[in-house]
């Protein structure tokens, strides 16, 4: 539940934990770095544009890695680009998040066997927090991935590591198969 959904009465006084406020502030202005590598970038741009309107989540692309919280690796990472991706990642201030978008950056995609020039998964060079499958993923998938990043931020606390937050996220997440099946049953009924 979001912080504002709690409904603030009592003379605008709100009691909450510092973690909660910090996480709320960070996940509500998640600024990705504006760079795309292949066709996934087209979907990412469509997601940023008015139809899907990422700005309602406080997400809008920045032109500099130094102002970004999130790197969306949108597309095929070539061996030549891999070193540039590392450099861009290193230029981002912490805490930073990486979302790997599409099959190419997840695992090499269609280039996995014969693509001599393609890095077989961006997780070989930088740590990835969220993977979005698809070739390319539709904007809905990307939004799903971004909300996963927000959920991850919500799991964070002062003094716990990223690995612990990811573990907490995995424990809290629901099995999508259950949701899919209940939706299907509801549709057929």
């Amino acid at each position: 539940m979001g912080l504002l959904d709690a409904g603030i009465k009592n003379h605008n006084v709100l009691v909450t934990s510092v973690d909660n406020v910090l996480n709320w502030a960070r996940l509500s202005s998640l600024w990705p770095m504006g760079f795309g590598l292949a066709c996934c970038a087209i979907e990412m741009m469509a997601t940023n544009a008015s139809n899907y309107d990422l700005e309602r989540f406080g997400i809008f692309p920045r032109s500099s890695p130094r102002q970004s919280d999130l790197m969306i690796v949108a597309g095929t990472v070539t061996m030549k680009m891999a070193e540039r991706v590392i450099r861009l990642y290193e230029q981002m201030p912490e805490p930073r998040y990486v979302l790997s978008m599409g099959s190419c950056s997840n695992c090499g995609g269609p280039y996995w066997e014969h693509g001599y020039h393609v890095l077989k998964g961006v997780d070989r060079i930088i740590p990835v927090d969220v993977y979005v499958p698809g070739c390319p993923p539709r904007p809905e998938s990307l939004i799903g991935g971004l909300m996963k990043v927000q959920e991850l931020i919500r799991m964070e606390q002062i003094g716990i590591s990223r690995a612990d937050a990811l573990k907490k996220l995995a424990e809290k997440s629901v099995d999508p198969q259950f949701v899919i099946e209940s939706e299907r049953n509801a549709a057929s009924a």
Partner: peptide
């Protein structure tokens, strides 16, 4: 052609 094992320390084959 056989692809090289690594490029600048990054593994190349799948």
């Amino acid at each position: 052609y056989k692809v090289q094992e690594s490029y600048h320390g990054i593994k190349v084959p799948y």
